[in-house]
Design a protein around this nucleic acid. Structure first.
Lengths: 179, 179
DNA sequence: TAATCATATGCGATAATTTGCATATGTCAA
DNA sequence: TTGACATATGCAAATTATCGCATATGATTA
């Protein structure tokens, strides 16, 4: 159900089309929630059914029509009620670490290559988050209350990527020094 | 499919019962893969069907019979083949950050309380991982090759929890100083 | 011209996850 | 005696995720 609430959270800010939501979940919101367009459209249909959002069709020239979704009062109430409930810490499922766990069987070279590849991915993601930080939160010690909350989600994304890169470095050092 | 491989990774070490697997996924392996007993038993049935594991029933007195699972040669080959395939970085889905993102609507007090509660949970998990580190990896600069790989997964768990605690502290500071 | 990309939205089948429930045998404490 | 806990294994229904596919309109490049 949290995807529904992640969508509602965005709609609290301003109306969105499914396409824009998809791009946002691939971009800035991806630091704390990832979703595919299939998921998003399916969820929007449900949200509309429950009267938590309304939809307005906007014709376009040379392009398919847009459907603009806005949150309803009921939707806002639902979000606030949900936000007041405690939530669990997320369950960790890291595939690369399954491979690392049995690295002695899989082979050290294989594992080191995969770690290096992941390090590269995390490095690129971090650069992307830093760009977002520069663009939207240039003066991070003078944020309005409204801005502080989204900034904290980005801070978590930045820390997460840094943390992964540091682990990769530690792992590579232990695996190459141990040879 | 990665739960199957997480189970195979454990079975590479020694045979396990479903019950022991459940406890291991709730304990040390939980730092990189979490799974419920329902998942595990369902997956074990599939693994047996595919001849990646064999099962031996062990009667007990005063307790239900045990079923002891061992990996087959085929299962080991499958694991190695899988470990040689690249894998994706995991998709992040953090419920608490959805709440934080729209914290201005949800209410600062609500958010701060939830952050403090999560900080406590992460602190306890970290203590647990440190205990595992002491118990199994007391001399971390003198690990065998076999031990280095599992230790690296625990290191990731430890870093992850520390990182979360630090984010909680940063978030609380920003949210209380901004008032 | 075909491939790639972009703007837009959507369907369906399969697999995985979540949650609640269940069985059997036993121990301990209020 | 009941509730909580432990050792053990298992089923089922609902929900979510994944992956592949699709439609429509258009632009650009090799």
């Amino acid at each position: 159900m949290a995807l529904a609430h992640a969508i509602l959270a965005l709609l609290l800010d301003c109306p969105f089309t499914g396409y824009d939501l998809t791009k946002t979940f691939a971009g800035s919101v991806g630091s704390f929630w990832k979703a595919t367009h299939q998921q998003i459209y399916r969820e929007l249909a449900k949200l509309e059914e429950q009267a938590w959002v309304t939809v307005e069709a906007i014709p376009q020239v040379g392009r398919p029509d847009k459907k603009l979704y806005s949150i309803t009062d009921l939707g806002q109430q639902e979000f606030v009620a949900w936000a007041n409930q405690p939530c669990d810490v997320s369950a960790v499922k890291e595939e690369i670490l399954v491979k690392v766990f049995a690295g002695a069987i899989a082979g050290t070279d294989t594992i080191c290559q995969e770690i290096q590849r992941h390090r590269q991915i995390h490095t690129e993601t971090l650069a992307n988050y830093h760009q977002i930080e520069q663009q939207f939160f240039a003066d991070r010690d003078r944020l309005s209350n409204e801005q502080t909350f989204p900034y904290l989600t980005l801070r978590r994304g930045i820390r997460y990527e840094i943390d992964w890169i540091e682990w990769c470095d530690e792992a590579l050092e232990r695996l190459t020094n141990g040879e």
